[in-house]
């Protein structure tokens, strides 16, 4: 807690990679429907081990110079027979739907106009929007790409406030405390978080106020 925070030097997503068995539809979806430029590709004859198939690794720009990438392996059959799931993983009927949907990629857009522009592009395609939802502070549209991967587009409905960062950190500290004990529950988390709020929230607000005052003081000095 008292250690200086580690310097945060990373710069977003270089690429997130997924296998595909349908490169034609994948290119149609990302390049032709969504308009994501193809920005890189690798044509590789195997990759070291003798049983590694030849493959094409291809990349689409998802904004901010971040990329989504796919592997197409020549001659490789699908790796599962499940009806549910995606090109990477299949799920049997015993797996709840919320769990299947939990893993997804969310792509950021600036505002609602841009969100609705992507909605228009998807709705005119073979992969129309399946849901449009206003969450707590973001609004999102969802579809599944040709490989079954869930893709979300999302926009912030307002900027994130500083107190939400405090709240997130108190949540995580409370979570670590309750998962460190037997039988963690949501009720136990809320009880532990209430303790952390009482311990820390008032001091946090005073520190915020002091920071605001310090930021204002030099400016006042210049003008006086």
């Amino acid at each position: 807690m008292t250690d200086a925070p580690l310097e945060h030097k990373v710069r977003g997503v270089d690429h997130a990679a997924f296998p595909t068995f349908d490169p034609a539809a994948t290119v149609r979806f990302y390049r032709d429907v969504l308009g994501f430029p193809v920005v890189h590709s690798i044509c590789a004859a195997g990759w070291g081990p003798e049983d590694h198939p030849d493959f094409i690794h291809f990349f689409f720009d998802i904004g901010n110079d971040d990329r989504i990438a796919f592997f197409y392996y020549f001659g490789l059959e699908r790796q599962h027979e499940q009806a549910r799931g995606d090109a990477y993983a299949g799920f049997g009927p015993e797996v709840p739907e919320f769990f299947v949907r939990s893993r997804h990629l969310a792509i950021h857009v600036d505002d609602q106009d841009d969100l609705l522009e992507y909605r228009r592009r998807l709705d005119a395609s073979s992969w129309p929007v399946e849901m449009q939802i206003q969450h707590e502070t973001i609004e999102s549209i969802y579809t599944h790409d040709p490989n079954g991967y869930m893709v979300e587009f999302t926009r912030a409905m307002r900027p994130v406030t500083p107190q939400e960062d405090l709240d997130a950190n108190l949540t995580i500290d409370a979570l670590l405390d309750v998962v460190g004990e037997p039988e963690p529950t949501f009720g136990k988390l809320l009880a532990r978080k209430a303790e952390l709020i009482v311990e820390r929230a008032a001091d946090w607000e005073l520190a915020q106020e002091r920071t605001r005052q310090q930021e204002q003081e030099p400016a006042q000095g210049v003008t006086s």
């Binding site: 206003q134 108190l170 209430a194 709020i197």
Partner: peptide
């Protein structure tokens, strides 16, 4: 979504 995530703590 707001309703089901509005509780921060219970004492």
């Amino acid at each position: 979504a707001v309703w089901y995530s509005c509780v921060a703590g219970i004492a």
